[in-house]
């Protein structure tokens, strides 16, 4: 939280950073509705591997995405220490399973460096930029790309 304190006066955008394995990622805090602990999800038939299932979020049915699997990394083995970041893009609300929330960052747009020119699918689909914060590298993720797509949207 030290970085936040330093930059509060500068304005700019706020990001929420979280950890998956040894990597750090962040999303815009404006898309985050809440952060809650892991609860077992009800598996969905015929769902992609990264969709862990659905949980009850105060009466709404909330799909849970294993962000690690979604980004092409090793599927998570959820424990009580995992957290779910409840995010909203347009009118859809989706929970992202991550290992832990690490920081809230306030940055200026020019702090975001372009992603290196690589041909990995991850870079093309999900990464929107990288940040160098106190010697750490944090990758900014495009939320919309993470959300599960229905057939009609893909068509």
């Amino acid at each position: 939280m030290t970085y936040l304190a330093k930059n509060l006066t500068n304005g700019g955008r706020e990001l929420i950073a979280f950890r998956i394995g040894d990597q750090e990622f962040c999303v815009n805090v404006m898309s985050v509705r809440e952060i809650r602990g892991w609860t077992p999800a009800t598996p969905m038939p015929h769902a992609p591997r990264y969709v862990l299932g659905v949980i009850n979020l105060r009466g709404a049915v909330l799909p849970i995405i294993d962000l690690s699997a979604r980004l092409g990394m090793r599927p998570a083995e959820p424990t009580v220490r995992h957290v779910i970041i409840v995010t909203q893009v347009k009118d859809k609300v989706v929970g992202l399973l991550v290992e832990a929330v690490s920081d809230i960052l306030t940055i200026k747009d020019e702090d975001i460096q372009p992603t290196p020119d690589m041909t990995s699918e991850f870079e093309r689909t999900f990464a929107r930029g990288i940040l160098a914060i106190e010697g750490r590298m944090i990758c900014l993720i495009e939320l919309e790309a993470v959300f599960p797509h229905s057939e009609s949207e893909a068509a």
Binding site: A41, T42, P45, V54, N56, V61, P63, V94, P148, E151
Partner: peptide
């Protein structure tokens, strides 16, 4: 469908007494 997509074979979901979602 509100937050996810239509799932073949599943009509809708509900929430049971234990708070879990059932299809």
């Amino acid at each position: 469908e509100a937050n996810y997509t239509h799932v073949p074979g599943i009509a809708a979901a509900t929430i049971l007494g234990d708070g879990r979602v059932a299809l």
